[in-house]
Amino acid sequence: MLDRVETDHVEMAGRSTRPASLLEAMRDRTKALHVTAERTGLVAELLRGRGTVQAYALLLRNLLPVYEALEADLVGHQGTPVVGLIVRPELHRSAAIRADLAQLDATDLTVLPEAIAYVRAIREAGSGSGHPLLAHAYTRYLGDLSGGQIIKKILARSLGLQQQALSFYEFSAIGDIPQFKDEYRGALEQAGAAMAEHDAVVEEAATAFQLNIALSQALQQASGLGSRERE
């Protein structure tokens, strides 16, 4: 999430005090973190139209190893009865990020310690059963399909970026994004019903948000936007 402005995180009227599903439990656990992610760090700068091309490129460079790790670990578990339910190659972002970095001539930027910590957490999530990967897929991909589409429009308008530099937010293999999101939520629910360790996965979702927030704040500082006067 780094670029995470996920419309999924809304309170559902009339539900019981105990979440009825994995998806609902992750929503509940990350609700406050979602608000923090929108309001702090580089994500907040981008949403306010105060980003720069350099900051966007730095964001991409630091997200690249995160997506490479997530996608490698998801594919590694694609034959399993739980994680295999959510492996969707059409969501993979690594190639798109590399294309954007090449377009921006920004392939040699620094990878921050916060991105390395994020990668380490994903690798740990992918060990063993790999079930905690559900939380990272939920956080990143549903964020990209939701708030990421808002950020794409803001970047195009505020930075004058052409489509060739915004491939990260383009899902050309997905014809109907709202329908796909519904199907992906359904796959997450099905995966949740097929496993026992809900609490660990829910906490991993909180960890994923915290890692995104930490990276976003570090990127804000590294890009020089952290010293700007707040509105």
Rank of each mutant, 00 (worst) to 15 (best):
L2S: 10
V5F: 00
V5A: 01
T7S: 06
G14M: 07
G14T: 08
G14H: 08
R18L: 14
L22Y: 11
L22C: 11
L23T: 14
L23K: 02
A25Y: 05
A25T: 08
M26G: 11
D28M: 14
D28Q: 15
R29F: 13
L33M: 15
L33N: 15
V35S: 13
L42K: 03
L47P: 00
L47H: 03
G49C: 10
G49K: 05
Y56L: 15
R61L: 11
N62W: 04
P65G: 04
P65H: 04
L70C: 02
G76N: 09
G76M: 11
T80V: 01
T80Q: 08
P81I: 12
V83N: 05
L85N: 04
V87H: 02
P89S: 02
A95F: 00
A99K: 08
L101Y: 05
L101T: 06
L104G: 09
T107H: 09
D108C: 00
L109Y: 09
T110F: 13
L112W: 02
A115N: 05
V119Y: 03
R120C: 09
A121Q: 06
E124S: 12
E124Q: 13
T139N: 09
T139L: 11
Y141M: 00
Y141P: 02
D144N: 00
L145D: 02
L145W: 02
I150N: 06
I150A: 07
R157N: 03
L159T: 08
G160I: 08
Q163E: 15
A165Y: 10
F168P: 05
F168D: 06
Y169P: 03
A173P: 00
G175W: 08
D176A: 01
I177V: 13
E183C: 10
E183Q: 14
G186T: 08
A187E: 13
L188I: 07
E189Y: 04
Q190R: 12
E197A: 13
A200E: 12
A200K: 01
V201F: 04
A205F: 04
F209S: 05
Q210T: 12
L211V: 03
A214L: 07
S216H: 06
Q220R: 07
Q220M: 09
Q221C: 07
A222P: 01
G226C: 02
R228D: 10
R230A: 09
